[in-house]
Amino acid sequence: MKLKTYFVDLVSERVGGETLACSDDFFAEMENLLKPGRSIFIDHKYTERGKWMDGWESRRSYGRANGREFDWCIIKLGINGVIRGFDIDTNYFRGNAPQTVSVEACVSNEHPNADTVWQIVLAESKVDAHSQNIFEITNPQTWTHVRLNMFPDGGIARFRVYGEADVNWDNFVEGELIDLASIKNGAKALLVSDMFFSDKNNLIMPGRGKDMGDGWETKRRRDPGPDWSIVKLAAQGSVEKVIVDTCHFKGNYPDTFKLEGLCSDSDDFDASNAKLAWQTIIPQTKLHAHREHLFINEITAAKTQHFTHVKLSIYPDGGISRLRVLGKRK
């Protein structure tokens, strides 16, 4: 299973993931674990402590005799949820990767402490140096924090926790408009026609895009298009307010867009999606460069109608920074 295709990274710093504490990060800081992208290597770059590494690297522990049997890092999930898999990436850690790793998890409303009860979700497992080590998980519980352990010491470049959001709907008041297309609320970008320049999930990330790479951008088409993206909403609901943001897209924003929706019990979309009974929510409408577009009166779907999925079509191609679909849960 392709974890990145079907699930979201629950510990990404972009969704609020945070490294809280570690046993040791003498050579390279624990915060590097959650950085976007894979790590880089800069030859001949050193710090006063040793070789600069783009990851989390502890000093040599010399095992149990030195009082540190293994190293650990506690991480707060940015999105509480069910864990489906891990990517423990030792990229460029060739002679200093750990021998094995394990992952524990807990549920806590505060920072974990000495009294926290941790449960094993990944038993101690071998990892390869300079590799993406993928582990699938079948535990159905919801978690708030994880603890990454490496034996006996060493370096890990990046850590991804792929899973599904478990949203506490009690945190919303009755009648509140909810961004049903927000990754933080459990939405998922399921399928796109093209994501040559950037990832499909950028479209539903929190905040405004920081640059042109922080959006969804397709390559240039040589036909009328459109390109499209299908998003599973966080919950079945109405569509009462839509924001389409072309922030940073100045010479490559789409000329027009259309938003459609449907109700489906399945997330199994493929190229045949064009044959589905998509209903128009906003008809084909003009867009402008580097602008946050607000649509309320343009919505043709009744407030009493409910959708589980939306399809954003852009004509003929281009880049959209963010999509917000605000409505009420059914």
Rank of each mutant, 00 (worst) to 15 (best):
A301W: 08
I281C: 01
G319A: 08
Q279P: 05
Y315K: 08
F269K: 10
I281G: 01
Q284M: 08
L287H: 12
Q279N: 10
H309E: 13
E298L: 07
E292V: 11
G318I: 00
L276H: 13
I281Q: 00
I296H: 11
I296Y: 08
L294G: 06
I299D: 14
P283Y: 12
G318T: 03
H309M: 04
D267P: 00
A302F: 06
Q279A: 09
T304M: 00
Q305C: 09
T308L: 04
H293R: 02
I314G: 01
T300F: 03
F269A: 08
I281F: 02
R291T: 05
L287E: 14
H290L: 02
D317Y: 14
I299A: 09
E298M: 04
A301E: 05
K311N: 08
N297L: 12
H306F: 10
H309G: 07
N273T: 11
R291V: 06
F269E: 06
F307D: 03
W278A: 04
T304H: 05
A277D: 13
P283N: 14
H306E: 13
V310L: 08
I314T: 07
I282A: 01
L276Y: 15
A274V: 12
D268Q: 04
D267T: 05
I296P: 08
L294T: 07
G318S: 03
K286P: 04
K311L: 12
Y315E: 01
A274R: 11
F295E: 12
E298V: 09
Q305N: 07
A271Y: 10
G319D: 01
W278F: 06
I299G: 13
T285Q: 15
Q284F: 01
H288C: 12
A277H: 13
Y315C: 04
P283S: 14
V310I: 15
G318W: 00
H309F: 01
S313E: 03
D317G: 01
Q284N: 07
S313R: 03
R291F: 10
F295N: 09
I296T: 15
A302Q: 14
T304Q: 10
L276T: 09
P316I: 04
V310N: 01
K303N: 11
D268W: 02
A274G: 11
F295G: 02
D270F: 10
I281L: 00
D268Y: 00
Q305A: 09
K275A: 15
P283Q: 12
F269Q: 04
